[in-house]
Amino acid sequence: MKKIAISIGDINGVGPHIALLEHNNIVNICHPIYCVHQEILQNACEILHIDLPKNMEFSPPSARVIPISPGKLEAKSGQYSYASFLEACSLAQTKQVHSICTLPIHKKAWHLANIVEVGHTDVLSKLFKKKAIMMLGCKEMFIALFSDHIPLKDVSAKISFRELTDFLVQLYKCVKMNKTLVLGVNPHCGDDGVMGSEDSIIDNAIKLANEIIAKEVFVGPFPPDTAFSPKNREKYHFFVSMYHDVGLAVLKALYFYESINVTLNIPILRTSVDHGVAYDIAYKNRPNTQSYLNAISMGVQHGIFNE
């Protein structure tokens, strides 16, 4: 049975509750190793009035044990979630586990803890000195993001012919998809330059990427406002979005609970839930665990998104 390291996420959010709720289910498909101190999950159980499962294996991070403050944004919970993630990465790098699965962090908590990386994907890019690719979705639809956690005002400047071409080629090497629809960036893809020149760069990058691959994999650019029409979603399983919210707004509207996050173009397999810490319901309401179960399943199968 494959071992999966589970980064616990922000302990003030829903991560620990999700891990506890589904432990007895996921042990049927993998051997989970929780990157958290047992005392912290025991604290979570006391708050939730449940028993700690007896067969949990722990690999505590190099951080001190802290109390849970349900729903509270704190630097110390941000620091702990960062340490938990690094512990999971270490287990994967040393091949003690097959893959890692991350529960949600809060980026502001990381910022308060003086962590310079914006999130998991940024850490992985720096750790492996490679441009990690963020792809989110489920069996119905996957969205790869050319730019992920950057401000909207910086997106246009990031769209360069060389960088986008390399992104598309690397994405294909990771996934080996048959056809992928690439979204433009301006309304109507710029209407032949009337509303910006970025879409012509995207068009040229698509052409060169297909030449390098020696196969017409990438199609577009296609106007973002009609890219996800029912007809296109029947025809295409994979999409590339130039900007985070353009792609993910549609994905989360359609498949909010089912979707997961997977990091490509790095030497380890990392999957994640596709939702946040949900401070508003943490330790109060039962969280939806479907994204977590799907992320674990993908970590075990290692290739569920292939066509």
Rank of each mutant, 00 (worst) to 15 (best):
I150N: 09
S156N: 10
F128T: 03
V175K: 01
F161P: 08
C189A: 08
F161C: 12
H120K: 10
F142S: 11
M135H: 05
A132T: 09
D166E: 13
G184A: 03
I159N: 07
F142R: 04
L145F: 08
T180V: 15
L145G: 08
T121V: 12
C174E: 15
T180C: 15
P187R: 01
L124G: 01
I133W: 02
C174V: 04
V182E: 02
V169G: 03
I115C: 10
V155L: 04
G190W: 00
S156A: 13
L136G: 14
Y172C: 09
T121F: 08
F128Q: 03
C174F: 00
S125V: 09
M141S: 07
M177Q: 12
I150F: 08
R162G: 06
S147H: 02
V194W: 02
V194E: 12
L168N: 01
G119V: 05
K129E: 15
C174Q: 05
K131G: 04
S160K: 06
A157Y: 03
H188V: 09
M141V: 14
E163T: 04
A144G: 10
P187K: 00
H188R: 04
G137Y: 00
D154P: 03
G184M: 02
P151A: 09
P151Q: 01
F161I: 10
F142Q: 11
L183A: 06
G193K: 05
F161A: 10
L152M: 11
D154L: 09
I133S: 07
S125L: 12
D192N: 14
L164T: 00
L145H: 08
V118F: 12
G190D: 01
E163I: 00
F128I: 09
M135A: 12
K126S: 14
D154K: 09
V155P: 07
D148C: 04
C138R: 03
K126Q: 15
L183N: 02
D122E: 15
I159P: 06
S125M: 12
G119H: 05
V118G: 15
H120E: 14
D166M: 03
L127F: 05
L127K: 02
V185R: 01
F142N: 08
V185C: 07
E140T: 08
F128L: 05
D166V: 06
D122G: 14
M177L: 11
L152R: 06
M134F: 06
K139M: 12
V194Y: 13
E117L: 14
F142L: 12
A144I: 07
K129A: 15
K129I: 11
G137I: 00
G193V: 06
M134C: 08
M134V: 14
L181W: 02
K153D: 09
E140H: 10
M177P: 10
D154E: 13
D154S: 12
H149E: 07
G119S: 13
D192M: 11
V116P: 07
D148I: 02
H149P: 05
E140G: 07
D148L: 01
D122H: 13
V182F: 09
I143N: 02
K139V: 13
K179E: 15
K130N: 09
A157G: 10
F142W: 15
E117A: 13
I133T: 08
T121S: 13
